[in-house]
Simulated scan of single mutants.
Amino acid sequence: MQAYEGKIYDADTHFYEVEDAYSRHLPEKFKKDWSFTSRVTADGNRCMYVGDRKVEISEGYTSAEGHVPPPGKLHEWLRAMKDGKDNVDMRVPPTPDMFNRDARLKKMDEFGVEACTMYIGEMVACISYLNEPVAANAVLHAYNQWMLDDWGFNYKDRIYTTPVVTLDDLDAAVAEAKWLVANGVRVILMPMGPFNGRSPADPYFDPFWSILNEAGVRVTFHVSEAIYMKDHMAVWGEPVQQSRQRQTAFVWMHGYGERPVMETLSSFIFYNFFERFPRVKLCSAENGAEWVPSLLVKMDKCRGMAKNGYWPCGQLKKRPSQIFKENVFVVAYPEDDIGQIIAQTGSSDFLLMGSDYPHAEGVPEPKDFASEACTELTEEDTRKIMYDNGRRFIPLHV
């Protein structure tokens, strides 16, 4: 396969927060216990704190002097460590495009990227620590205000940032949704899992969803610590909110893997969410895509098993697998066997590419996704994954 030269919609990119991102708009009464700060530990590692609570999983990602992992070079980094090389840190000074929207547009032009979905930075590690609804909503609104200041929610129809919304307090969520829509939001980010013992698709939350539906706002679920798994992990003797170095394979697989996103997305389908809100589309980012074929098979099977059972929001008019393909998008990993995913599901229409720029885990440049993941695909499927499907997820014009 020759190098991909077509249009690109990058469905998984990130920024890094500036120093006052969390505090610029945070009301004074929340600053003592809920300010997010980056501190250097006694071991010389930089780590995030929420108040005085250490965000263990963030430790060591950024060096003491503020250097970051090299974009798209995780494999080289790990290989150097395995080979016992002396200089395995490989951290590099951050570049302006990691903090500034105009600099990022220039980088996107360099990469040949027309538009992108842009996710949060170190906040992704901190969301699970927001365990008190009043404070959580204050922190997230202040953070979203900073995001609007520095990045905008839709910058020149090219950068679509993802302000964070939780459903822990319905009234606060409704107010936030109205504010976001008034400020041009196109896509939001939500934590995976239930809220206060309810599926996010429970009709209780319909006042929130009706606002997003009217505006055609999209919703994403990016990999992060799904804190609702905390109690389940505890019965296995597996603590969560650990550093990456101490996190066990069991937690990676069941607490931080594909189970939270599978449960979350299937709940939307089984609660007949898209019958009520057809203009809301969902996206899974950085959870991979190899779980999709088995999920579709299991959902279809369970629909049949529950045919005469209780359906909280009414029977589905279509097969769950079809509803999924029409309303859900999934960002694949470049290492996923995308050809098999398409063969097993019969469709490439739900698949998106993501570079994860400027993180180390992704590809060096967005076009490299095609050469790593799409070599066995048709030109049509490659074009869909690299561009067309992304533009269906967030159309150029509402």
Results as ranks from 00 to 15, higher is better:
Y9V: 13
D10P: 07
T13E: 02
H14M: 01
E17K: 03
E19R: 04
D20I: 05
A21K: 08
A21M: 11
R24I: 06
R24N: 05
W34A: 06
T37S: 14
N45H: 06
V50S: 07
G51H: 10
D52Q: 15
V55L: 03
I57L: 14
E59S: 02
G66T: 00
V68P: 03
H75S: 10
K85M: 09
M90D: 02
L105G: 04
D109R: 00
E110H: 11
C116D: 09
V124E: 11
A136Y: 04
Q145F: 05
W146K: 05
D149V: 13
D150R: 15
F153T: 12
F153Y: 15
N154V: 04
T161P: 09
V164D: 05
A172G: 05
V174D: 03
W179F: 10
N183Q: 08
I188D: 00
F195C: 04
G197R: 01
G197Y: 01
S199C: 10
S199P: 08
D202T: 01
F205W: 10
F205Y: 15
P207A: 02
F208Q: 00
I211H: 02
G216Y: 01
V217F: 09
V217G: 06
H222P: 04
V223C: 11
V223P: 03
S224V: 04
A226T: 06
I227T: 09
I227Y: 12
Y228N: 05
K230C: 05
M233S: 02
A234F: 08
V235L: 12
G237T: 01
P239N: 01
Q241M: 15
T248C: 12
V251C: 15
G257Q: 01
R259A: 14
R259Y: 13
L265S: 07
S267D: 15
N272H: 10
F277Q: 06
F277Y: 12
P278W: 13
K281P: 07
C283G: 12
C283I: 06
S284E: 03
E286S: 03
V292N: 08
S294M: 13
S294H: 11
K301M: 12
C302Q: 12
R303S: 10
M305G: 08
A306W: 13
Y310C: 12
Q315W: 11
K317S: 13
I323Q: 07
V328F: 03
Y333F: 14
D337E: 14
I338T: 06
I342V: 10
T345Y: 08
T345M: 08
F350E: 09
P364S: 01
E365L: 05
K367I: 11
A373W: 01
T378V: 00
T378N: 00
E379S: 03
R383Q: 15
N389P: 07
G390Y: 00
F393T: 11
I394F: 03
H397E: 15
